[in-house]
């Protein structure tokens, strides 16, 4: 019998700890497929951050470094400047990247640091049980915005792609979504392109992936996918924000 669908080599064959309906698993697979397809697993160094994916060094088969909260772009900078011929990526959530790690991501992008950033936007802190993230939508209820996020009290959600795209440094920035198969396929292409941009030495690449958090949203998996489609896409439009014409 022919195997038509297998686990990528770059993904370790162990059960993941993520909640049912969480899209981290899909994103891990997209990254691993890219490493396989591009034949770069052996020269890739990944940087895990702090958040639900803190221990994805168990799941990725390439060399991995676990970084302090928000510091993954600085750690990745240190690695890439040490090993310029290797491929370096960070895997960060919205709290990690857009709150505590704002300085690190902005300056890595501004320097045009030749790394790839996989940015998970699920509008909430998952690991610490559902607090407000910088990407939490207005009126969204979280454990630290029990009456809903208000612009007056908490400020407006941050659009990371748009913000970073104002800089000269980034070579490629795209926002994708995982709410259906069609969009997952587009996300796969975006992740692959981000790595190819790095392989071509073009500079900083970032893919923002609109993701779910059924547990902390208080929804079932299907309702979560609907929320991405119906609520998140409006505030976080999909598309390429830098490097649209970039051929790699």
């Amino acid at each position: 019998m022919a195997v038509v669908f297998d686990r990528p080599h770059a993904l370790v064959d162990i059960p993941m700890h993520y909640c049912p309906g969480c899209t981290h698993g899909i994103t891990h697979r997209l990254v691993a497929e890219a490493l396989d397809d591009l034949g770069i697993e052996g020269k890739t160094v990944g940087v895990s951050s702090v958040g639900c994916s803190y221990n994805n060094y168990f799941y990725f088969n390439c060399d991995m470094i676990q970084a302090a909260h928000g510091r993954a772009p600085a750690v990745a900078t240190g690695v890439k400047r040490s090993l310029p011929d290797n491929i370096v990526f960070t895997y960060q959530g919205d709290g990690d990247l857009a709150a505590i790690g704002t300085a690190e991501i902005v300056h890595a992008a501004a320097r045009g640091e030749n790394i790839t950033v996989i940015f998970i936007n699920n509008t909430i802190y998952g690991m610490t049980s559902g607090q407000m993230a910088p990407t939490t939508l207005l009126n969204q209820v979280t454990t630290t915005t029990p009456y809903g996020r208000s612009a007056k009290n908490h400020g407006n959600p941050i659009r990371v792609c748009e913000m970073l795209a104002t800089l000269e440094g980034p070579a490629y920035i795209e926002r994708v979504s995982l709410h259906d198969i069609k969009h997952i396929k587009k996300a796969k292409e975006a992740v692959r392109k981000a790595f190819k941009v790095q392989m071509a030495g073009k500079g900083f690449s970032l893919v923002e992936i609109l993701s779910t958090c059924p547990t902390n949203w208080g929804m079932d998996p299907l309702e979560s996918l609907d929320r991405v489609k119906n609520e998140m896409l409006e505030y976080y439009p999909l598309g390429v924000f830098a490097g649209e014409d970039l051929e790699v």
Binding site: A74, V75, T77, G78, V79
Partner: peptide, 26 residues
């Protein structure tokens, strides 16, 4: 070699963390 002026001391020490992880004298 590499000299990099970081955006903060916090970033600088984390760049050190990265280069040390890569096995370099930093």
């Amino acid at each position: 070699g590499v000299f990099l002026q970081a955006e903060s001391e916090v970033s600088a020490i984390n760049m050190v963390y990265g280069a040390a992880s890569a096995g370099k004298r930093v």
